[in-house]
Design a binder for these strands. Structure first.
Lengths: 153, 153
DNA sequence: GGATCATTACTCGGATACGCCGTGTCCGAGTCTCCCGGG
DNA sequence: CCCGGGAGACTCGGACACGGCGTATCCGAGTAATGATCC
């Protein structure tokens, strides 16, 4: 039997939670402020977080071509494109947070006819929620976050 | 002494996850189909889930006056009002799933100036997402789910 | 026959134990830089 | 002076262990129906 279309996605990397999303956004803002490459240890120090956890998350973003890695001395992470071209929805989708919500909703159903029908309904509602969330997140870019973190108000 | 606007929030009760939300919706649909009171064991059997887990969740819904409990023989759970008056947003808010998302986003920030600013930004975005989600969930009621689970398509 | 009360069966809610997932710590593989020697 | 090679140091990514949260199992407290008993 073929494996299907699940070839590119390694869900083993990092947890698809909102904390991960928050850490990703903060790291991207920091990378946007730094012009050159920035190692994970510096980011972790600035964010008061753990370097390995950041690396796990940033590896996913690098796999989705949002950032680029550079190993060796003077290496680290760097944005692949301009901060105003990176939407929060793009980061959100890269981390597959919507799929986590979907599985959380649909996998809680049984196998009988009622469970199957409810699973279908849950999937529809989840899809609508995800689309709504993506619409909101599409309005903001990393550049917006940089601006809002530099100017208090 | 009145408790004020705290409205007796015991976060110790059940996890604020989407699986909980899914189980709540399924249980409410089942309760809407049954006119009289229905014990948790019957609901769990029909949903192919665990009775104690359902009871934990339903206790929260009863605390928010969405359903009513009746102990003793021939007891169980019963909807407090008509299914077409119970919106999914109401259930969603009762389970405090939005607060779980908010804490997941805001608690991932540090304590320095950058972390505080990011926390504020995260809170704003989270609030906007929550409002969007609630808007979607306000369009549907338990009666809608009952209808969609009875009529295949 | 009707009312009262003890019995009983059935319910929910809480306490406890197990398992999984997320997180923290450590280490190896890889690579880019820097310095030094030779032409 | 310019170029090439080796050492060095710094980086990321993966493996392993700890901790917390969610979940499952069990049990007690409480209540409403039931049936027997008495008036």
């Amino acid at each position: 039997m073929e494996e299907g279309q699940s070839s590119r996605k390694q869900p083993k990397s990092c947890p698809s939670t909102y904390k991960t999303f928050s850490l990703s956004l903060q790291a991207l803002v920091i990378l946007a402020k730094h012009s050159s490459t920035c190692p994970s240890s510096d980011i972790a120090t600035y964010m008061q977080s753990e370097a390995t956890l950041l690396r796990r998350i940033l590896a996913v973003l690098a796999r989705e071509y949002i950032i680029e890695t550079r190993e060796g001395r003077e290496g680290g992470y760097r944005l692949s494109k301009s901060p105003d071209l990176i939407t929060l929805a793009e980061v959100y989708s890269a981390l597959q947070i919507d799929e986590a919500r979907c599985s959380g909703m649909t996998e809680a159903t049984g196998e009988n006819s009622f469970g199957v029908k409810m699973k279908s309904v849950m999937f529809d509602i989840t899809s609508e929620i995800d689309q709504s969330v993506l619409t909101v997140l599409n309005k903001y870019t990393i550049a917006d976050l940089v601006e809002r973190t530099c100017e208090p108000d």
